[in-house]
Design a protein around this nucleic acid. Structure first.
Lengths: 204, 204
DNA sequence: TTCAAATTCAAGAAAAATATTGAATATTTG
DNA sequence: CAAATATTCAATATTTTTCTTGAATTTGAA
């Protein structure tokens, strides 16, 4: 009878240890970030607004649970998602959080309201599909037919954006703000611009 | 630029708040338990080996995130899962934990090794399918063709179990130990008995 | 070999989650 | 209305998680 409890404690404890690895805002952001391809510790730290030492610790927690992998190259260590099922897990958690946490629902709804957007992937022939992520992420993976102008180069490269089609902008994920800002900038310049909503569960 | 970070902190924070509700062994056990139907606070506390006050607090955390519902009846409060997607979520987390936490894998593998078991749901005509859960849980839901003998009545009710068929026992979930014990008891009595493995991701 | 840069390590401080305890509340029953 | 029971509340102690800091390690380059 005592064994009974020991077994349950170990089993539910092991399960909780796994879920705990995901139960932190910084680590969730890291997973979201790494969906766009591998990154060095320093890049990850910068993107998640934390110190390198702190980022390293978080990454090791994710690594211990086989959620991320690391690859050493020179003095750099590059982290990436351990498998495609980690992507799916992240998306599922996002969808469920959206359904269960009213503040998140509200937050996304407000963002949505203040910005023209498209819910479906547009036909690349009728729209100019604009990817605002850094070049490396664009090369890692991008929507078919998309054109890459990293956000920090947008103002200098407006000439590359056609004026005879509506523009549809996207970036890293639902919480990435580059596309929002780009839409505002482009509209000020007279473009017909929309943000693309990519992830499931966000129909408001 | 500062807004940028505020938005991300709120978004990932909200997501983490949801995941945190699941990141605790006791709360995971509660969800697993409630998959078998509604229960009062006292029952839940007893089953998870904690105090009533503590159980109440955990249940309120689950309730705040809409993972469970409560219903008041007299001086009792009955908790139940908020929807079928909570079941699915639990099963998915179990499956992923099993794949990512080696100790959990080992734990289940050892348990499996020491006990004759079946991985697939047996034909109720050729097997005697034995459900060892309390009567109320059996009524809430059970496998088609199953016969209910609550574990604590097993020894007194052996006469109800046929000797001309192999017995396949199951109970609450993969971490429930009644079926294991029942298989051992039945084998000692000369029955050909197996434990049914119900949940996904446990093929060792 | 020495220096510089990227990462990790290790220790302690700070913050958050969890458990415990005893009291408060609400409901039924006598 | 008073007593009994189930649950929740509230305060505090305990434990765990997270962040910070500075040093140690590893690798490449001068």
């Amino acid at each position: 009878m005592k064994d009974n409890r020991t077994f349950k404690d170990e089993a539910y404890g092991a399960m909780a240890r796994f879920v705990k690895a995901l139960a932190n805002p910084t680590r969730l952001e890291m997973i979201d970030l790494l969906r766009n391809g591998e990154k060095s510790v320093e890049e990850i730290a910068r993107a998640t607004a934390t110190t390198v030492a702190n980022a390293s610790q978080h990454l090791q927690i994710l690594k211990k649970l086989n959620l991320v992998r690391s690859r050493k190259a020179g003095t750099y260590v590059y982290y990436s998602l351990a498998g495609t099922e980690v992507q799916s897990l992240w998306q599922l958690l996002l969808k469920l959080a959206y359904a269960h946490v009213p503040e998140l629902h509200r937050l996304m709804h407000n963002k949505r309201k203040s910005l023209p957007h498209l819910d479906e992937r547009p036909d690349p022939d009728r729209f100019f599909l604009l990817d605002l992520r850094p070049e490396a992420e664009f090369h890692h993976h991008h929507l078919p037919g998309a054109h890459n102008i990293p956000f920090d180069q947008l103002r200098e490269r407006l000439a590359e954006i056609p004026r005879d089609k509506p523009i549809v902008a996207y970036c890293r994920g639902p919480f990435c703000t580059w596309a929002d800002k780009a839409v505002r900038i482009l509209r000020k310049q007279g473009y017909e611009a929309y943000r693309l909503i990519q992830d499931e569960g966000f129909e408001g």
